[in-house]
């Protein structure tokens, strides 16, 4: 527990002192979304139709890109080796890191999403569902993406390889995440879909950190 708390506060501190890592994904999210009305059409009916998908694709890309360097600095500085040789199970600091990362990069996306949903002409009654879907979905995206990030940590291949590995794994979360919003827009039964999204989060949050820890061990040469 002390190791978890120490790792969590350390990760929060590191991210807090490099604000670009927090702000850039947020701006990326906003910028990508504002491309769609310009590229497709600013017509309100059309925007409302594509908005669930646009919001979710943008969130997915923002989370994924923010994860590209998740373990890189730790690896370059030698912190990762300390983590892997410590008597504490690797999954403990890894979980702390994922939590810290989501709190400072995923959660802000959730918080600004109502504004963007409104700009995409979604009806105000679904804004709560938009936030809820991202609240359940973005942590799952963080964990799944971290698996890819752990497997590619020493490779210096940039984001493309990560995308090739991770995007197919993101598809279920994308489908149900955007699906919840669309169901809400059409007035369908939202709780059932939210439950599925919650189940996906439970699955990834419970098994994901183990896979991330295993990935880090493999990348270090095991």
């Amino acid at each position: 527990m002390t190791a978890f708390r120490a790792a969590l506060s350390r990760e929060l501190l590191v991210l807090w002192r490099s604000p670009a890592e927090i702000i850039n994904p947020l701006f990326f999210f906003v910028m990508v979304i504002s491309l769609f009305p310009l590229a497709i059409s600013p017509k309100p009916e059309l925007l409302a139709l594509i908005a669930p998908g646009v919001l979710w694709v943008a969130a997915l890309l923002a989370v994924m890109l923010s994860l590209d360097g998740l373990f890189r600095r730790d690896q370059e500085s030698g912190v990762l080796e300390q983590l892997l040789t410590s008597p504490v199970m690797t999954v403990v600091p890894v979980t702390a890191k994922l939590l810290a990362h989501w709190l400072l990069t995923g959660l802000p996306l959730v918080l600004v999403s109502p504004v963007l949903a409104h700009m995409l002409q979604l009806p105000d009654r679904v804004l709560g569902v938009v936030m809820l879907s991202l609240l359940l979905g973005t942590p799952a995206l963080t964990v799944i993406g971290a698996i890819g990030s752990a497997l590619t940590v020493g490779l210096n291949r940039g984001g493309i390889l990560l995308a090739v590995l991770v995007l197919p794994l993101y598809i279920p979360v994308l489908i149900f995440g955007a699906g919840v919003i669309r169901t809400a827009v059409e007035g369908g039964p939202v709780p059932g879909v939210l439950a599925i999204l919650g189940a996906l989060l439970a699955l990834t949050a419970s098994l994901g950190p183990l896979a991330v820890a295993a990935g880090l061990k493999i990348s270090s040469g095991n």
Binding site: I144, I147, G148, L169, I171, P172, A211, A214, I218, N222
Partner: peptide, 13 residues
């Protein structure tokens, strides 16, 4: 082994 881990996650997916 890296590909193996990815494949395990992939099968669930």
């Amino acid at each position: 082994r890296a590909a193996g881990l990815l494949a395990i996650v992939g099968v669930i997916n």
